[in-house]
Design a protein around this nucleic acid. Sequence first.
DNA 1: AATAATTCTGAAATCGATTTCAGAAATGAA
DNA 2: TTCATTTCTGAAATCGATTTCAGAATTATT
Lengths: 363, 363
Amino acid sequence: MDKKPVIDPKGRQQPRVKIEDVARKANVSPATVSRVLNHPDIVRPELRDRVMRHINDLSYTRDSAARALKSGRMRTVGVIVPTLALGIFAEGVEALQNRLSESGYTLFIANSQYDQRREFQELQSLVERGIDGIVLVGGSHGRELRSLIEQAGVPVITTYVSKAGGGIPAIGIDNESATREMTEYLLRLGHVRFGAIANVVATSNDRSRARLEGIQRALSDAGLPLKPTQIIKADYSLAQGRSALRQLLTDHPDTTAVICTTDTLAIGAMAEARKMGLIVPTALSITGFDDVELAAQMDPPLTTVSVPAAEIGRGAADYLINAIAGSPVPKSVLLPYRLVMRSSSAPPRSGEGPARRRRSRDV
Amino acid sequence: MDKKPVIDPKGRQQPRVKIEDVARKANVSPATVSRVLNHPDIVRPELRDRVMRHINDLSYTRDSAARALKSGRMRTVGVIVPTLALGIFAEGVEALQNRLSESGYTLFIANSQYDQRREFQELQSLVERGIDGIVLVGGSHGRELRSLIEQAGVPVITTYVSKAGGGIPAIGIDNESATREMTEYLLRLGHVRFGAIANVVATSNDRSRARLEGIQRALSDAGLPLKPTQIIKADYSLAQGRSALRQLLTDHPDTTAVICTTDTLAIGAMAEARKMGLIVPTALSITGFDDVELAAQMDPPLTTVSVPAAEIGRGAADYLINAIAGSPVPKSVLLPYRLVMRSSSAPPRSGEGPARRRRSRDV
DNA sequence: AATAATTCTGAAATCGATTTCAGAAATGAA
DNA sequence: TTCATTTCTGAAATCGATTTCAGAATTATT
């Protein structure tokens, strides 16, 4: 007779109910129980029901480790975002998880803090866990990471961008074209003296770099190329938006339009403008990017670019689910962004730059 | 001779490197390789190094499914939050993941959308995955869920609250005492006509309920109990903050202080106040809860309660890591909140309620 | 140098579910 | 009623890493 330790080797309180226990209760073989669970249609209905009853009686749940070992599928996907502090990433992850959950997948999450080395380490740890699919953000990753992906032999998709290097499929928007359109819109309003605030300090942030390029290209095409001092580089915090605006207006007090690569920066810039006594948009037009919840609630409401974060998350889930199943998948998915014109942008005051005066109602 | 299919049964491109392959290359048994990996100190150094070299050469990583099957430990924790759209949850999850990662754990994430049934289903799916620990938000959960936890025999901790039902340990702040303090502060400023905006529509949200109770208790103690019409119930959106304020001031135009259970609601209320031509804080004091990044940047900056979300996340991680290891753990952890007095609150204008006048600079 | 004590290593069993293969039962045909 | 099909079910092998147990190799002791 086997010795049955009080505490089983796995340290659980009560020994786990196994498929064999169900089989014994139901007077069938473990194979049949397994079939009831995985291919119900090939088991005689009455037998199936009987087994099912016992499964419920014992509240049996199969051991996913054993299952994964045999099948080689964990039914698990991993996502690595730069940070969850940014609403659009949180929103995307939430949509991703919801869609995966509908298909019986669970989601591992990790964050890289915009650090490529950390991204690599986190991915390595996820790959070791045997994930079936990978979601990344953005298109710039180290070659080390790309070879890890290849070695893992698991489908990947990168998000929030329209294309990525190394043949990795992408789902997202064309960031460059979005800011280009935004800039052209401001040009049409009559602006000629621009400034740009871009969060391009992290080398891995190709979204913001593309956005900055869109601005630069549109202005070059219009014969108004930005001087280096008209471009303020920042990280992604609200406070940096404030200081960036201050610096920009110190160097170029006659600026009439400031294009930010992020709503957070734009909101910071607006706060600073207000503090400096500049009326937005009369004295200064400010635009953002992302269309976070707050953008519409600002005073004045912020002109920005709406990013379909939830759609990106859902799309990434669908892509991976299909790819894992071996179904055909598109090479990339380009989603539409939406320019949202609100009242933080307007034509410039005729000729002159923003005068430093107290806020007032006389405009 | 075995047939070696081109595509292995697990569908991977190149067949996985197994411990046996390493063993063969290194001329040792699989047992030794395993020991090198798990108990390096009991293997003769030179042998250990030789095996290690081959492990690296073949870039072998062990199959976590097989490992988990044998050991019963997945080195995985699951967290279920109501939503990631709320910054404090995103921040907590991020801190949780960072701390877990340091200890070699990976994090499953799921969201419940404040729906107890969904929370249960997501947890069930996580438990089936064999997670070693569970992080929940708040203290009100169905008894179904509690029995699932018990059956899983896995440590749990609930977060953002100071106590939970059913003997579940908690880490967080005392929400009720925080709003009570806030209310007492407003009483000291001289306010006597209060309104409350609380996101208490979701039955599972015991944080906001506790916050509302704190307000009510403080006011009752001061002999100024709130009438039902002075309490506006909302969900957690900014737009609801706006409409709530409008409704409150319709019923009680002489209100001088509005206490919100969430910054999001408070920010909405401030936006609406501005639109109605009410100067904050002169005509109306408004306070929030959470101290989101934006709160400090509002105009005027928002008086609120700062919640140590990152600390909660880290603490939850530490708790579970210890509990899983069998180390002693505290029954609960009470963290300090911080009242942040900013300029959205001030003494009431002597006697009168907020007059409906256009915003102006004459105050 | 011979034996005892100690340290290492390998063979084999094990974790729990899945699936192949073959045989049993049930159905249909003659 | 008997034989040929078809449909179900069960025994046993398998996934890959871990660990026990016992035997081999090494070192210490007299």
